[in-house]
Design a protein around this nucleic acid. Structure first.
Lengths: 201, 201, 201, 201
DNA sequence: AGCTAATCGAGACGGTACGTCTAGTCTTGCG
DNA sequence: CGCAAGACTAGACGTACCGTCTCGATTAGCT
């Protein structure tokens, strides 16, 4: 029982849907955000422009689905992060993986374009949080709760704040080209955050 | 003695320069980033389009100067932050002031627009760091060094990391509409960072 | 037993056929030729677009049937024009009636639209002549032949030329908005033509 | 002292104006009316679409100027028709020349397209009459007046009606593909009209 | 005080993309 | 199988801006 403001979804062409998302990803990775136009996406996907306008309200919405399709390539179920029992190890690995994604054009280019659209469109920002950020944050919080139970984090630690302090500096470096994405940096970030939220002795 | 690749600056119309920066700020605050076009700026500033293209390489460059003119309304000299002797007090005040700026349309709208441009243009990002971010970061570091001398921060604390951990979460909340800008939040952020970098006992 | 290149006509929906012709007429009379689109006709007639494309090769063909249905509202048999015995009287009455039709939107609008299509499509022009113009011309010629027999027209008068000289000026005024459609004009036209083709004394 | 509702004409590019009119003519002659689009004209003329929209209100207006430029290739002054002293000879020559124009694609194709536009647009029809038809009609009337003075036409002959009766049948044959354009036909047309308007004996 | 060369407001230019509309085809499910 | 409905590819519509390019008309700074 969906309540979309879009047309009857049962008649929708799956072939076109996939071609559009793929074209958007390919184009932004190959030619950059500036040349990512609806016309170019339609042409690359061998699709009429109207087919894009029929199913997505904006270029940003296409990008959101593009990125989503990329990160959910295989799974539709909930995300579960590795749990070695040591929160420091796991967080450092996670942060390095995130930094690696930011460095990989095929993933980073659509995500950067999407971030630009989000920054200019609060409605898209909402969608992004609900459909991309929230599931990932929930997975991360589960790992943090596990660490709390293991006594590796303070019982009253503010998990949202921890996630912010871990993710935002790295994301900012990437988005604004303002600093390193190296594992050296992410390791020190994890160390500092764990120091701030370690259980009191 | 500047070495710009722009025309003879002595003949430049100061009236036009100011009108353009003002128009850019006003337009983005009133009508939003989407309607911030070179044509609209020129029309609002009662200026020929060529006058903009003559002195700025891109819309983002105009915005950079716009934001710069706004934050340097009075001073041209170095920024100095308040120093009450207590780093916690001073950082919390600073963070609240930053959050207040993010909440004020007249300042936040041009800054958000500039951030969008920066995200899409690495060259502009460089300029932004040199001319806006770096001076501010230097002032903040001076305050942090003062705290180190006073024994309120670990002597080997990574000051850049501290600044990232303070500023990035707040900036991210603002840019992506992903969380609160309230003083409650900034206070807890400062607390956590100070915990992470307090001198070892 | 017709030999159309269209699908099996026995299964055809009479309700749809009529609704389409009616919708075409109504639309062109209400909103003008510019808004007469296949989509609009289908929507107005509560008909799928394919039903139009299945039975008519072009918008002009629909219009042709529309106009035909209008002028043959009652009769399917041959047209017979009034014959008072005086050719001048009868032609003047005929011309006035024609001018009146040109002035009536419900009839003139579809006919004007059809004329536009004909001008751009020679195949449609052929159809128009065979199915609309020729029967009417034959009726007119019969009346002229009657006048010849009565000694009111020269025995060797070129009847096709007479019809051209009577109808074309009036039709041209109507189509190109280039002159009057008044009975004063049509009367003078009839007078001139009769002068040209009266029997030599 | 012009009162056009178009922009300042002094800055207008003569090169673009000519290229547009030429492109319109060429396109309609080569590919037909159906493919005569503003986009195609702009592309063929190596011109931005806006340059067309800036100076002409419609495709029909471009065609009007196109046809006008064609028929005024050399002269800007008034048209004067040949006068051999014999009206029959001159009118037959004139009608044959007109029929020849209708048969020449380079001239006939733009004129046919223009006629279609005129039929659908009363405002364009007005313009056409003032700028194309009226000057030509005036020249024809002068020749007819000369014939009146020479006693070859009735002194009270309705010259407008004569012109209608000569031109409309031929034009109708051409536009609706409804009859011949041969000199045989035009000669008989002239004969009939002269019979109708010869001086009474 | 005039000369002259660059800057100015203005806006036309060749282009590109927008978001909408319609053409004509194709697909789905009902009767 | 025809039908209503409507999604599909394709492409033109008319508009908005881009960045470049003339135009005179100021308006400096130098002679």
């Amino acid at each position: 029982m969906t309540t979309r403001s879009t047309p009857d979804t049962s008649r929708r062409s799956e072939r076109s849907r996939k071609a559009i998302l793929q074209a958007a990803r390919d184009l932004v990775a190959e030619t950059g955000y500036a040349k990512l136009t609806i016309e170019a996406i339609a042409a690359r996907a061998k699709v009429g422009k109207q087919t894009i306008y029929r199913w997505w309200p904006s270029k940003g919405a296409v990008l959101l689905d593009s990125v989503l399709a990329l990160s959910q390539a295989d799974q539709d179920q909930d995300i579960t992060l590795p749990d070695t029992g040591d929160i420091e190890t796991d967080l450092k690995a996670l942060m390095r993986a995130t930094a690696a994604e930011f460095a990989a054009p095929a993933f980073a280019a659509p995500l950067r374009a999407l971030t630009i659209e989000i920054t200019a469109d609060p409605r898209l920002a909402d969608d992004y949080h609900k459909r991309v950020a929230a599931p990932m944050e929930e997975a991360k919080k589960q790992r943090l709760r596990s660490a709390q139970r293991a006594g590796q984090l303070a019982a009253d630690a503010d998990l949202d704040l921890i996630l912010d302090m871990l993710y935002a500096p790295l994301a900012q470096h990437w988005m604004l080209h303002s600093g390193p994405l190296a594992s050296d940096y992410t390791d020190r970030l994890v160390d500092a955050v764990l120091r701030a939220f370690s259980p009191r002795t």
